[in-house]
Structures are given as C-alpha cells and as structure tokens.
Design a protein around this nucleic acid. Structure first.
Lengths: 172, 172
DNA sequence: CTAATATCAGCGCTACTGAGATCT
DNA sequence: CAGATCTCAGTATCGCTGATATTA
C-alpha cells in the first residue's frame, strides 16, 4: 500500500499503523494546496498570504459586506490580535475601512472598499478556479465523499468556525 | 448543506461553489490537527514544532537510522536551508549527530543519537495515539475512503514525498 | 464588578533566498 | 565546466502573548 507505512510497520510492527495515513496526508495536502492559493494571492498583488482570505470572507458574507474583527478572526483561526495586524495592512492598502459599530461602541465594522470589492471579486474567481483544478484530481463521487468525511472530521475536531456554524455567530 | 457555501452561492450564484468545500476543509482540518501534534511535541520537550518530524522520519527510515539532509528536507516539504536550521537545533540538543558520508564527501548523514532514538520512540507512540484519537471521529469505512482519496489527491498535487515514492529516493 | 471588544508593543518562531564552499 | 550537496547570513513573514482602554 505505502512504503512509508510498510517501513514503519516493519520497524514497529506491534503498533497499529493505519491511522497514521489520514492525518499525515491531510497535512501534506494542506501544505501543497496552500502554496497554490498563496500563488493566486501573489498574482493579485497581495504579498501577505492570509490577506486575501479576509477580503473573500467579507465578500462572501454578503451585504452589507462588513463584519467585526472578532468574527473574521474566528473564520481565519486567528487570535484577534493577529487579525488586527492583517486589518492594519489591508486598511493601509485601501482595501478595507474600519467604521464604528453604531450599536456597540466597543465594536468595529470592517468594510470592503470599492477597490477591495473589485479585488475580492477577481481574486476569488481565480481562487475558485485553482480549487477546482485541485478537485479535478478526484471524480465526482470522491469529491462528495471527501466533502462529507472532512466535515465530520472538522466537527469532531471542534472546529469553532465549522461551515455549519461559522456564519451564524453573533452578528454584532 | 453549509451556510458558508449557501451564502456564497447566493452572492454569486453563477459560480459553481461545490469545489470550494474540500480544499478549505482540508486547510482547516490541517490547522487543527497540527495544533494537536504540536502539543504532543511540546510534551516531550521539543519547543520547535517541526523537530519531532525529523526524529520520527529517521526512526521510521529503519536501520541504520541515518539519512541525508536533502532527503529529510523533501520529506518535511522544506528547503535544505530550512532543514539545516532544524538539524542545528537537534544536534545542539544532542538528539541527532552529523557524520560524513564516506562515499560522497559533499554529503552528510544525520544520525539518531541514543537519546534521540529514545525520544523518537516515546514521542512517536504519543503522536500515533493522538492521530488515532483524531481518526476515531470517523468510522472504519470513512477512514479507508479518506486514506484512499487523499492519496489520489496527493499524487495529483505532485507531492514529491508522496508515501508511494518518498521512501525510495536515492539512499545516499 | 466581570466579561467582551479591539488595539498595541514586544517577542519568538519559522522558513526562505541567495551566496559560497566543496565535491562529483 | 555543469550540477549536486550542504551551510550560512540576512531577511521577511507571521502570529501570539499580555497589557491597556473602552464599553456592555
């Protein structure tokens, strides 16, 4: 099946080696997929890898295209401090703007600027194309199975921003 | 199915949103799995995240438990320069030793020390337990399907250290 | 008062790049 | 000479932690 597993099974045959496969392959695949998506971001002038994710998150969140830093941080699996850094860069680049939340004076809304919206739209299409290219390596059944299994895995891992929950944490 | 996808489908309904799911879920899952494995490494006194991977790679490679930096770099998806940094730390910690390759005076063998071997053994068992805990969130069929699908995906992604090829690049 | 939000400064980790030395 | 191996110095990125101000 796999030389890696086989070698290790030979080395420590008393251990059940089968569970090793899935976790390590997820890590490897993530590494390779991330590299492709980073290349897309670079194409659109975003030298900082995670910045595009913020723009596309805002774009996907729908009108009025603004969210709080905390909400964005959860979606990006970052601390709010880390998100502050990203937002500083994006604001400085004129792609997002910070506006006060009228209902909670502690809060801030991060809004897409016109330029940010344009960039999000074009870059997101490229990003989707890239992801489709990755997925084209699997047939339709495999894609569906992978989507379902990964969702179950994410729930089990306690993903706080799991697709099934990510888009309905407190809205303000 | 998923609020994230549904929201986006509503935003840009002309785009086929289905491929979005798998890639993003792989990235999320990888993030959460990596955090768990980093915690295992920390338990064993390895503050630097990737260092344990080097020890376990050497352990799994079997007798005589030595490999070249290039080989290790490929397995870790790193440049050789990055691997040099890891090896410096591990050598300083007394967990590996560098020895000249008698057959190629450009080359170096990275060897597990006794202490490195001990640590690799104990930490690897914990790491496997952790990975098994992750996998326990899936049933047997799902585990098998995930392993197969991910391997196909890795091959498609051109994983240079794919399990099917990683353990038979040049031996010296 | 406790909890939540956002920011900021300081810190540490990580890996990459490009150059160079050595050797095949 | 081209190509491979490894190392090194310099650089950049990135996110976290902990403290702070503000507000609920």
């Amino acid at each position: 099946m796999s030389d890696q597993i086989a070698d290790w099974a030979h080395e420590r045959s008393t251990l059940d080696t089968e569970p090793l496969e899935v976790a390590t392959r997820i890590l490897r695949a993530a590494h390779l997929i991330q590299a492709r998506l980073d290349a897309v971001a670079t194409t659109h002038g975003l030298s900082h890898k995670g910045d595009l994710d913020v723009l596309t998150s805002l774009r996907r969140s729908g009108p009025p295209y603004h969210q709080t830093p905390s909400w964005l941080a959860r979606g990006a699996q970052l601390t709010t401090g880390g998100m502050t850094n990203r937002l500083d860069r994006l604001e400085h680049a004129g792609l997002v703007a910070r506006e006060p939340d009228p209902d909670d004076r502690r809060g801030v809304f991060v809004c897409l600027t016109e330029e940010g919206m344009r960039l999000a739209d074009t870059a997101l299409e490229d990003s989707i194309a890239e992801q489709r290219a990755v997925l084209s390596m699997l047939n339709t059944n495999e894609q569906a199975a992978a989507a379902r299994i990964l969702q179950r895995l994410l729930i089990g891992l306690g993903d706080t921003a799991d697709p099934a929950a990510a888009y309905r944490p407190r809205t303000s």
